[in-house]
Amino acid sequence: MGSKWEDFIDNLRDEAGKLAKDELKDLIKTAKDDSEDFIKEQGQKLEIYLTQLASGQITKNQFEGYVLDIKELTEMKALQMSVAAKASAQRMVNGITDLIIDGLLMLI
């Protein structure tokens, strides 16, 4: 027998077969085990939200809002990673310019 949130997903009526239940459960479990702290945290939050939904602590609309929040947070995180990479490259270029072009090469 799975956890409360897994049972909740399994017991959802899906006559049209729209929900890939196993894939959804795997997504959450994989995220929770991810080495990247941010992804792990979002996976844990999804688990918490599903458990809250299963126990009636939150509504379906509220759950949907949280999922949109997670989507947006993940997109923000991707933007942060872009800045980190660009800042690193910028430091490299500035170092090359200041220390090598304007410094070392002038002495050679």
Partner: peptide
């Protein structure tokens, strides 16, 4: 809002601010 809903919403908006704040700190 219920307490549960408040805590969830606060956690997410706080995290959004934290990501933006940290992003600014990453800049040279």
């Amino acid at each position: 809002w219920t307490t549960t809903h408040l805590n969830n919403q606060k956690q997410n908006i706080a995290e959004a601010f934290d990501i933006a704040i940290k992003t600014e700190r990453l800049k040279n």
